[in-house]
């Protein structure tokens, strides 16, 4: 029970910081909308809907990257991470809290982006939406860990996309497949499998990433 309340407290902290500073979310919203507009001009006339779904996923992944790049910045600027690590809570709670906070940001960005996508390009059915949700889980779970890895290095803004994109390839496959394949269930299964494997892995290994010695 204390674990869950720790996680909830950490998530609330992140959301409150964001509400006060308004650093990340407006940027993500603007970015995803501009990307969609750019895509309209990047797609030649008559390319069909399939290409649009692919581009939606490019937009989602890069928007998530934008959010993830900011994920650990407040902690680093104020040296909070070291004190959090010393705090008497399970370290994986820090990861889970960050993952949930990032998930909230990403969902908020998509709450705008997906209707805009439907309006501009092509309809989304229930399977596609389920794919988006499942992929969001995977993106945030893996992303918050990888962002913590990258945050320790020099040039972390450069490092994060490099570390994250190869890991995101199965997610894109699953997401696009769920949107355009007539048999979307298999892709949802793939996404769920990915989420399960990588969530457990990130949960178990986060401790090693943040502890100092």
């Amino acid at each position: 029970m204390t674990y869950l309340s720790d996680v909830a407290a950490l998530t609330r902290k992140d959301l409150r910081v964001e509400l006060r500073a308004r650093d990340t979310l407006p940027a993500m919203l603007l970015f995803v909308l501009s990307t969609l507009v750019v895509f309209h001009f990047a797609l030649p006339e008559g390319t069909g809907e399939s290409a649009a779904y692919g581009l939606l996923w490019v937009a989602i992944v890069f928007t998530a990257l934008l959010g993830l790049a900011r994920a650990w910045v407040p902690e680093h600027e104020h040296g909070v991470l070291d004190s959090l690590v010393l705090a008497p809570c399970d370290r994986s709670a820090i990861w889970l809290g960050k993952t949930l906070a990032t998930l909230v940001f990403l969902l908020a960005a998509q709450a705008v982006a997906l209707p805009a996508f439907v309006l501009f390009f092509a309809p989304l059915d229930a399977t596609a939406l389920a794919g988006v949700l499942l992929a969001d889980l995977g993106i945030c779970a893996v992303g918050s860990l990888v962002a913590a890895l990258a945050a320790a290095g020099r040039a972390r803004e450069l490092l994060l996309p490099l570390l994250f994109l190869p890991l995101a390839i199965p997610l894109v496959v699953g997401g696009v497949g769920a949107a355009i394949s007539p048999d979307g269930g298999r892709y949802l299964l793939l996404l769920a499998l990915y989420d399960a494997i990588f969530a457990v892995l990130s949960w178990a290994s986060f401790e090693y990433v943040v502890t100092e010695s």
């Binding site: 390839i169 199965p170 699953g174 497949g177 298999r186 793939l190 892995l201």
Partner: peptide, 13 residues
């Protein structure tokens, strides 16, 4: 962990 998952993904793709 990525090896089997992407193998599956690429198969499906």
């Amino acid at each position: 962990a990525l090896i089997p998952v992407s193998f599956l993904a690429i198969r499906l793709a």
